[in-house]
Design a binder for these strands. Structure first.
Lengths: 229, 229
DNA sequence: AAAACCCTTCGCCGCGCGCCGAACTGTCCG
DNA sequence: CGGACAGTTCGGCGCGCGGCGAAGGGTTTT
């Protein structure tokens, strides 16, 4: 019997501090040692050791730039595998309560390279309701091209081996939202259009006023209602 | 930020003994404490503690029957998540060498509820070559119904939310084979027809002589050639 | 009833690892 | 050059956990 080295990966994610760091890195951005240390609530020395371990496990890659070292997830497969894990992870009701208490702050955030959070879940539901998106064989298929252009989505001529639009399970809602290349296109376009902004020190994304207007117009739905849903 | 409880899951799979047990359970069958203890190379007391932990993490469920306790994976999602993890796990070249040395013993085995191993990978390649199976949007779609009936596969009228045929990455080969409901149908039919048998104490499946004949006839391929490939 | 068997609980040992303080290297700035 | 800052290495502390032996329930067999 061949045993894949789960234990190496498992040991990498078995610690709460490393877990916290990985969750931070799931945003898709690169973070410095100090930032990740702060996120995990440990000293930089400790964080350094953790990141070394994550690097050895192949989950994280580091890039030196000046006197700073930027850490990021090793690739989309890593993010995807972690998503799958999150899907079967026991719900942390305590943290979820804190989340609800925090209000709309985390209504929208990025999940590796695409939009996530309740708002993204709601958007996906609208797409499905309108038939713009069809769930098929566990993957998403996009229907009419015209509608999507408004959201900055350019449909590819041929879908390669990787699904263009992949369903991704949201941690907080346990419902699907759009990942894959299409998800990335939407996020990129939203950032480029100024619809959403990255928070400087806080995690999560901020929906700007123009962004709210644009989404309301395109989706013909109140974003307030979306957020409330 | 909401952090899914990776750490609980991570701790569950961070240990080599538990890893070994999980790999055993990936076969899909239920195992007793003693069997799993032997597989992990520890005493029954230790295995009992491990299984308790896996149960608390929600990865494994136990069922008491007489004086024995049967353990199995909590569900297909768990198996799927572990598969994803295995896909990004570093290859264990040492064990792989042992595997090759062991010869054809593990040519065929079950992966939770469907066929796996080099032979299953080769079968899948045949399906793809013949156009019986088409990879689309990251899922498998089955083409003509007639051919499949010989393999015991009944195509569903409507594909539900879950993909009927899901590609599954083989641990040893790192190549795709057929999972999902279709994979289960094939395995069930192969067992019912006596094409393959479960080994009593060894892991893995045994391809019987009638099974070899049947597969050669249906697939029009030499199973020896398949196994050698 | 006694023996055999499966599993679990308890108590203990020893290693491993997460954590920090202190000290060192390397980079950027004035 | 000297100070500030990011990151790493080293040493030591202490908890946590995997491991086993011994003992205790339950169930099946003789």
């Amino acid at each position: 019997m061949i045993t894949p080295r789960f234990d190496i990966l498992g040991q990498a994610i078995s610690d709460a501090s490393r877990t916290q760091m990985l969750c931070e890195l799931m945003e898709g951005r690169a973070y410095t040692n100090k930032e990740l240390a702060a996120a995990a609530g440990v000293t930089p020395q400790t964080a350094s050791a953790h990141l070394r371990l994550l690097q050895d496990a192949g989950l994280v890659v580091a890039q030196k730039r000046g006197r700073c070292v930027y850490h990021r997830l090793a690739g989309p497969e890593v993010a995807h595998a972690l998503e799958q894990l999150a899907a079967i992870a026991p719900a942390d009701s305590l943290h979820r309560a804190q989340q609800r208490k925090a209000g709309g702050l985390a209504q929208l955030r990025s999940c590796y390279d695409h939009l996530a959070g309740p708002l993204a879940v709601a958007m996906t539901r609208v797409f499905l309701d309108r038939g713009m998106l069809v769930e098929e064989q566990g993957a998403f298929r996009a229907e009419p091209a015209g509608e999507w252009l408004k959201l900055g989505v350019v449909l590819p001529e041929k879908t390669g081996r990787q699904p263009f639009a992949r369903p991704c399970l949201d941690w907080t809602e346990r419902k699907l939202h759009v990942a894959g290349p299409m998800g990335r296109q939407i996020l990129d376009h939203a950032l480029a259009s100024g619809w959403v902004k990255r928070h400087r020190h806080k995690r999560g994304l901020l929906l700007t006023a123009p962004g709210r207007v644009a989404l309301e117009q395109i989706l013909d739905v109140r974003c307030g209602a979306l957020a409330a849903a």
